[in-house]
Design a protein around this nucleic acid. Structure first.
Length: 434
DNA sequence: TCTGGGGTCCTAGGACCC
DNA sequence: TCTGGGGTCCTAGGACCC
């Protein structure tokens, strides 16, 4: 086995239980208390504080399945992605000041370039300190010669930081091919539940076990993706930082409905409107779209229907998309059926300016300018201020005290009972200091 | 009562062409 | 009549990520 020993080239800095930390940032009463953030419609737990984990709660558990005795001990919040996204952007700007290159990997994780730095650990600790002081989010740092090792280091920093906090040590870990025997293989980036099961049958338990398998057999049995992961565990880089976010290939908006509905048209139209806004925000146009609807498997009705349609010319016009969505949805609905979930996808996305008009098809420039005006108004006064002949708007559901627009057609809307205010993104909800 | 949402990449197999 | 290799494109399904 070839092992390459290198100084760290990459760092991975991520926020500890990020959504919970964001909620705590604005509501210090939550500190030290078991805290849970719930996903859409207050359904499943999507983030847990360590205290909540200690009570036995798991990511993905529906909150209603949690026994009352435990639920009473837990502070519950509805996910507030506007708030989390805003704090995330502040963290990124701190990192850009300290590192020559930053890859925004997810809302709570950033890779940084530490190649050639004299003391990468010190710089990473400085970053951690600034983020804690200026944004209020605690972070852990992993270092490694490859991105996979940096991820591994981050995991190990997390598991060690509990003990380290007591011992006064700090939440940084430099992972090398020699010290990753401490990391269970399921915690390796790129190894999910399926691979973990199959690897266990081969006696592979740790990251080091995976690294020591013959590469050819990993390649043959698991494919190129895991073979690359294995190379990276040995310190051989298979990828660099991605500094530019690549253009999306598709944009999907889907939701579980608040209850089973017979007529999901209003929901699908709303999803499509949101998808179009997102698409225009990225200067893209859709060459095709699809729509799907699911029954309720928990009621023994687990069907799935979907239909797709290409568009004659890539469009960024909400009206045109809605027309297609209505047509497809109506062709899929049956009088006796109830739907639990639905979604729409805009696909075959191209950059708006790369569309080429031909003799028969060209964008309607007047309508397209109208779309841009609409987006500007909605950005300024809130989503749904103006729209293309539809009803209710906030996809996540009404905030407490806010009227539920859309009337009886809006039964699909999930309710949010415990949404924290949009402290940083709405003037009316700014935190007040007495 | 109530069960997350949004992405990417790879592979295998079928259809089709030369 | 019988039988070929190689290329492309598309789709569905499987695996992963946060």
């Amino acid at each position: 086995m070839s092992i390459v020993q290198e100084p760290p080239r990459f760092g991975l800095i991520d926020g500890n239980t990020f959504y919970v930390s964001c909620e705590r940032m604005f509501d210090p009463r939550l500190h030290g208390k078991p805290t849970v953030v719930l996903g859409n419609g207050d359904g499943c737990c999507i983030a847990l504080s360590p205290e909540a984990k200690a009570l036995g709660l798991k990511i993905g558990t529906p909150i209603f399945q949690v026994p009352d005795a435990i639920r009473k001990q837990v502070q519950v919040r509805s996910a507030n992605f506007a708030l989390y996204g805003d704090l995330s952007a502040r963290i990124v700007s701190i990192l850009r000041d300290l590192f020559p290159r930053v890859e925004v990997y997810s809302i709570d994780e950033n890779f940084v370039d530490v190649e050639g730095m004299k003391d990468p650990v010190a710089i990473c600790l400085e970053a951690r300190e600034r983020i804690l002081q200026w944004v209020g989010i605690p972070c852990c740092v992993g270092l490694g010669a490859t991105r996979t090792l940096a991820k591994a280091g981050n995991k190990l920093a997390k598991t060690q930081s509990k003990r380290a906090a007591k011992a006064g040590r700090l939440a940084v870990f430099h992972a090398t091919p020699e010290n990753i025997h401490q990391l269970p293989v399921e915690d390796v980036w790129g190894v999910g539940r399926r691979y973990t099961e199959r690897l266990a049958q081969e006696g592979v338990q740790t990251a080091a076990d995976l690294a020591s398998l013959p590469t050819d057999s990993v390649r043959a049995r698991y494919g190129v993706v895991l073979a690359r992961t294995q190379q990276e565990l040995r310190g051989i880089p298979c990828g660099d930082l991605e500094l530019e976010e690549p253009d999306r290939k598709q944009i999907v908006v889907s939701r579980m409905f608040g209850r089973d509905v017979a007529d999901p048209l209003d929901a699908l139209v709303t999803f499509a409107t949101v998808a179009c806004e997102k698409m225009r925000g990225r200067d893209l146009a859709a060459g095709a779209l699809w729509v799907w609807l699911d029954g309720n498997p928990h009621k023994g009705d687990g069907f799935h229907v979907s239909r797709a349609v290409p568009l004659p010319f890539p469009t960024r016009d909400t009206g045109e998309v809605l027309q297609a969505v209505r047509f497809l949805a109506k062709s899929m609905m049956r009088p006796d059926q109830r739907f639990k979930r639905g979604g729409i996808g805009l696909t075959d996305l191209v950059r708006s300016e790369q569309r080429h008009a031909d003799m028969f098809f060209a964008p309607d420039s007047r309508r397209e300018r109208g779309m841009d005006v609409m987006d500007k108004i909605n950005a300024k006064y809130g989503r749904g201020t103006v729209g293309v002949g539809t009803t209710g708007w906030r996809v996540g559901g009404a905030r407490p005290g806010e009227p539920r627009r859309g009337g009886k057609d809006a039964q699909w809307r999930p309710r949010l009972k415990a949404l924290s205010p949009a402290y940083t993104t709405r003037w009316s909800e700014l935190l007040r200091v007495q």
